[in-house]
Design a protein around this nucleic acid. Structure first.
Lengths: 166, 166
DNA sequence: TTGATTGCAAAGCATTTGCATGCTA
DNA sequence: TAGCATGCAAATGCTTTGCAATCAA
């Protein structure tokens, strides 16, 4: 976590920006929260620590964290952008339960290898990729579509009908 | 294309809805346009045929097409929902060029097999998945970041900075 | 001191909804 | 005739921007 902070401050300096109390607090709260946070989620958490922080600053700081390589944007189909740790959290993909909103992270070297082969065949130079598998997790299958609160590790994602795979 | 129309009309009937001139026109234009159309793209195309069609109706009809299994929603990171044919167009994934906005469709049985294995391991029941590989296509690599109009099969997708993989 | 930062309010943008009118079955 | 469909305008929800006041370097 100290390392992440150094990275952030180095990025701030390199870009000719300034270190502020708000940015430090936002980074702090983000680093200690191992979840997929929306800007609003983070805003509320930060507010507990320092009520004098605006929504706008959280939005802007999250973009800064992405620039610095500390955060990564993810979207799970509920129309809002979420952020996850990106430093020392190597690439992975997600399964998203459309019943309870839980996400399962996974990584497959084979999957990556096949993708490499595919892009090579098309002479496509990839910069990033995103694989999301939507469906119903084991717990929700048992509960036959009656998820409870504790089945959701994170706030429930609600879909209009079918998830629109944003 | 006749078959698709039948499917649509059957869906309309089954759902207790009504067949209208607008819906027929929208379906017609959609079916004959083999592109990833946003609601607005389709709205403009339909307007050429029948100026008395509103944006709202196009939105609502596209949802109907998705319900009927004729269309599939896709998102390429420019913040708008696009629709592609889903009937007789089996599942495939996309490479998206962040320079010119072109999309390359591909399918890999191995990829699907590995995904099946992964979800099985987690006892996850998948309903759909979405794999998008963002990067630079062969043409744009040659042009070294100076894409021309003809390099884009579809309207250019613009990103703020890095594509936010919505 | 200078220019970046902040946070409120307002604007943007894609999408959705309310509602009076029009039209299918 | 009943009630679904239409399309305008307004609302929605997330995100971004304008701007005057504030603050780091």
């Amino acid at each position: 976590m100290t390392e992440e902070k150094e990275i952030f401050h180095r990025h701030i300096q390199r870009a000719g920006l300034k270190r502020t109390a708000q940015r430090d607090t936002i980074l702090d709260v983000f680093l200690r929260t191992e979840k997929h946070l929306s800007s609003e989620d983070l805003y509320h958490l930060v507010k507990e620590e320092d009520p004098n922080v605006g929504h706008t600053t959280v939005y802007r700081t999250l973009k800064l964290l992405v620039e610095a390589g500390l955060a990564r944007e993810v979207r799970f189909g509920d129309g809002r952008t979420r952020y996850e740790h990106n430093y020392n959290h190597p690439h992975h993909d997600h399964m998203i339960c459309t019943e309870c909103g839980k996400t399962i992270e996974f990584f497959s070297a084979e999957l990556e290898a096949i993708q490499d082969a595919i892009v090579a065949k098309h002479k496509f130079r990839p910069t990033q990729h995103s694989l999301r598998i939507f469906g119903v997790c084991a717990q929700c299958q048992r509960k036959a579509g009656a998820p409870t609160d504790e089945s959701a590790a994170e706030p429930r994602i609600r879909f209009a009908s079918a998830p629109n795979t944003q």
